[in-house]
Simulated scan of single mutants.
Amino acid sequence: MFNPTRLSTARKRRQLTKKHLAESAGISQLTLTRIESGQTADPGEETVSALAKALSYPVSFFYREDCEELPVEAVSFRSLSSLTARQRDAALSAGAIAHLLDDWITDRFNLPEPDLLDLRDEDPESAAIALRRHWGIGSKPIPHILKLLEAKGIRVFSLAENNKNVDAFSCWRNGVPYVFLNTFKSAERSRFDTAHELGHLVLHLHGGTSGREVEREADRFASAFLVPRDDFIANVPVVRSLQQLMACKHRWGVSLAAITRTAYDVGSLSEWHYREFCKQISYRGFRKNEPEPMRREESVLWKKVFGQLWKERLTKDHIAAELGIPVDEISALIEGILGGDQEKVKTFRSGAKLRSV
């Protein structure tokens, strides 16, 4: 039976209004509205084919059970205020597609179990220390935060939303935490976004909280998690130049602007020097183009999964066909965090068990 909620999901993923989709499919907007609302329970085969073609989705996608659409209140968006409704809905729909893919993989592999804490009663800095202690990493720098999160049971996917409004978002689903990253940003910004979303997962647990204060708390958590204050003070008791901070940013894997703010917050940098350094960072264009950029992190978990799947030489088309989704949706979710090793992404093995990740 035709599923109207899936039509809505596909339309939102393509960021099309009902008017534009109706025009592309050669039907009236009223007809489309009746189909999407479920008033027309069984649209004709020709109409469904026209809609599928306009959306570049397989016809089979529209005849399956409901996708688990994420409600806005269950998701933490990094910059919700700057998002258009269309961008927000496209990102939420990407989450629904990711859940289909994750369920397919989880049925075939033993993935790490979530190992997070409920830190809603802690302030952001204390929460960062508590989670670091729980994970046994003390105050040392985190060279690969993506690998760390994956090892702790967090599913990390990429977003192919080539715009700066969708930084990242996170959510919980059936006890499993998810983080979605926009790899359009610099490697340093992506690391901060990752830690920011981790903060939401442990501080807020997506209980309907939102607003600037919640985002500031996640920022404070990310800063303290990536650059522990005691480690910074021990290594950089006094800051004398921007060049000194340039070297520091490589130790902790954060942007020059972020490490400058940390230096000020812990008292290693005076207010006057902080303001002067911020002016230099802006004047030299370092806020838009990170100086001495680090290499972008790549997923370790998905590479291990796809390495197992490679042996049976099953393609992304195989998974797409099983799930009834377009191949480009799979690519959008994984290729942004898989780096350059794309040949192995093309083929998958069915039924393998991932015993060690």
Rank of each mutant, 00 (worst) to 15 (best):
A54P: 03
L83W: 01
S49F: 05
A54D: 03
T47S: 03
E65N: 15
L92M: 03
R78M: 10
V48N: 00
A90S: 13
R120I: 00
D123V: 13
K152C: 04
A151C: 07
R86N: 10
R64A: 09
D123Q: 10
A54L: 09
K140T: 00
S126P: 09
K147M: 09
D107E: 15
F77W: 13
E125S: 08
V156Y: 10
A127C: 05
T40Y: 09
D123A: 09
L92W: 04
L149T: 09
S139D: 13
L116T: 10
D66K: 14
L70P: 00
E125Y: 11
G95D: 13
H144T: 13
R108K: 07
H99S: 15
L101I: 14
P141W: 00
V156N: 08
A50E: 07
G95P: 09
R88A: 13
L146S: 05
P58R: 00
V156K: 00
P71D: 15
S79W: 14
G95K: 08
E161I: 03
L111Y: 03
G153M: 05
P58Q: 04
Q87V: 01
V156F: 11
I129K: 07
F62E: 03
A128R: 01
A50M: 03
V48C: 00
S56G: 06
S49Y: 01
V156A: 02
L116W: 08
S81C: 10
E113D: 15
S37Q: 12
A41R: 13
L148R: 01
S82L: 15
L55T: 00
D121F: 10
P143F: 05
P141R: 01
L92P: 01
I154H: 09
I154C: 11
L55D: 02
L146N: 04
W104Q: 06
A91S: 12
A130T: 11
